[in-house]
Design a protein around this nucleic acid. Sequence first.
DNA 1: TCAAATTAAATTGCATATAATTAAATAGGA
DNA 2: TCCTATTTAATTATATGCAATTTAATTTGA
Lengths: 143, 143
Amino acid sequence: MKDEALLLQNQLCFPLYACAKEIVKQYGPFLKEIGLTYTQYIVMLVLWEQKAMNVKALGERLYLDSGTLTPLLKKLEAEGFITRDRMAKDERNVQIALTAKAETLKKQALDIPAKISSCVKLSMQDAATLYRLLYQILEGLRT
Amino acid sequence: MKDEALLLQNQLCFPLYACAKEIVKQYGPFLKEIGLTYTQYIVMLVLWEQKAMNVKALGERLYLDSGTLTPLLKKLEAEGFITRDRMAKDERNVQIALTAKAETLKKQALDIPAKISSCVKLSMQDAATLYRLLYQILEGLRT
DNA sequence: TCAAATTAAATTGCATATAATTAAATAGGA
DNA sequence: TCCTATTTAATTATATGCAATTTAATTTGA
């Protein structure tokens, strides 16, 4: 292994890391309008799809663990967007469900994806390629 | 804008965010062996290239601000890898430079890129494409 | 010249993230 | 059944990240 491998420009991880941060930053102003952070937003995206699920399932879907999710979910609960309930059938599980207020929030969130798309200048083709490669890496690491 | 836009699977940002986190996580065990975190590692990568630079230039290169860098650099200084000195010419600038210990560390870091490559299963072609698309986005956001 | 604007770091407050540990609940096997 | 292993959340400790503010130094322009 030669020194060149240590050049930042030769490392694929860095643009990935930087790009993720910069795009998340683009969400900032739009999400602030509806009172969410990016992580809270992707939690809500999953819940808007699934309606209800436990913390573990949410974590697997979002690649987050309870150390991140527990306080975040408590915050969303305090703000009235979700409910957190131990399940009777297995009390180790905490079921997360949406409130009516979450539906109102969803309406406010509807136009956010389009706003972000306009910030990220990629052709449909390039976006599809990027999407495919990222999921390919994620699947590869999943094991 | 239809509801489908809010599906997590339709958002390019999420795989980017998740993929960056998961790959950084792959570095964890290797970096732990040499006593660095990922952010400390990329700071060292830049310094191994440049030898010396001020906090602002480092931040521009890494897309990090002083809120992140100042405490991190103080830690690297405390561990003896770098020095931090106000520049005489313009005392607003803090110059970061490497110590001899940093050169020893560099030798230990030499094989890390190869270890990561073997974790991320992408063809050379795909890696090049991904690299190009990520920098394309970063450049687009830079403005 | 010298006050105002700008710049570079540092600081503060808040929100993640992850590793490691703990606690409670459940499942599985002798 | 009862003991152990496993599972799920929560907690703790550490390290980022970023927005906003502050401080000190420098630059600019009337």
